[in-house]
Design a protein around this nucleic acid. Structure first.
Length: 202
DNA sequence: TCACTGATCGTCT
DNA sequence: GACGATCAGTGAG
């Protein structure tokens, strides 16, 4: 297998706007370099959680848990969902503004053999489909909360290896407040998306 | 393929 | 004391 070279994204490359960042990240690469064995995938699905958004964890202001959402854009916000699953977000605004982009699905690109797959033999197409499985596949834990994804650390964002196709917009998944807003972004036709086929058809 | 349900626990009210 | 930005398993069509 050919070695893939990952070019780290600088913070300046990230749009300073939550919706624009959520679209920008489609096609970009997420890399977790574990002692020379990179786990990596193309981002194919994101959701935006805006300032003043009732569905956002930052809606009621800064707390111990959501502090990373208030860091400068490009930092990891990791929290545990349903007591079990870590979820990875990217902070998306200026320091002091609580907003983030949730990474919901990856097209696996490197380190497939090394990725944690859970109790059963999950198919490659499902290994990073959904935010909980995405974090599991890339070995992301609460320890990565507040990590700088534009810094020199092992977990980082990288430039697209292959350009993204057309991007569709849909409603977000799994929320009850502000559920109608079109703030979920997907690469059209990708087989690696979470959510129902109907929702992904646009 | 879709609909429904139980598991599970940190965080905030 | 209640509530999830979910997943995996089950059963029906």
């Amino acid at each position: 297998m050919a070695e893939l070279k990952f070019r780290r994204l600088t913070r300046n490359a990230l749009p300073l706007d939550t919706v624009r960042l959520a679209r920008f990240l489609i096609g970009c690469t997420l890399v977790h370099d574990l002692s020379g064995t990179p786990l990596a995938g193309r981002i194919v699905e994101t959701e935006a959680y805006l300032p003043g958004d009732a569905a956002s964890h930052a809606f009621r202001g800064e707390t111990r848990r959501n502090r990373a959402m208030f860091l400068r854009r490009g930092h990891a916000y990791v929290y545990i969902s349903y007591g079990v699953w870590p979820m990875l977000n990217v902070s998306s605004e200026e320091e002091g503004t609580g907003a983030a982009v949730l990474l919901r699905a990856l097209e696996p690109m490197a380190g497939l053999e090394e990725m944690p797959r859970g109790p059963n033999r999950i198919r490659d197409v499902d290994i990073a489909r959904g935010p909980g499985r995405l974090a599991r596949a890339l070995a992301i834990t609460l320890a990565h909360d507040r990590a700088d994804l534009c810094g020199p650390g092992p977990l980082f964002l990288a430039a697209p290896v292959r350009k993204a196709g057309p991007i569709l917009t849909t409603t977000r998944i799994g929320i009850t407040k502000d559920a109608e807003r079109p703030l979920r972004f997907i690469e059209a036709g990708s087989p690696y998306l979470s959510g129902s086929r109907r929702l992904n058809a646009g």
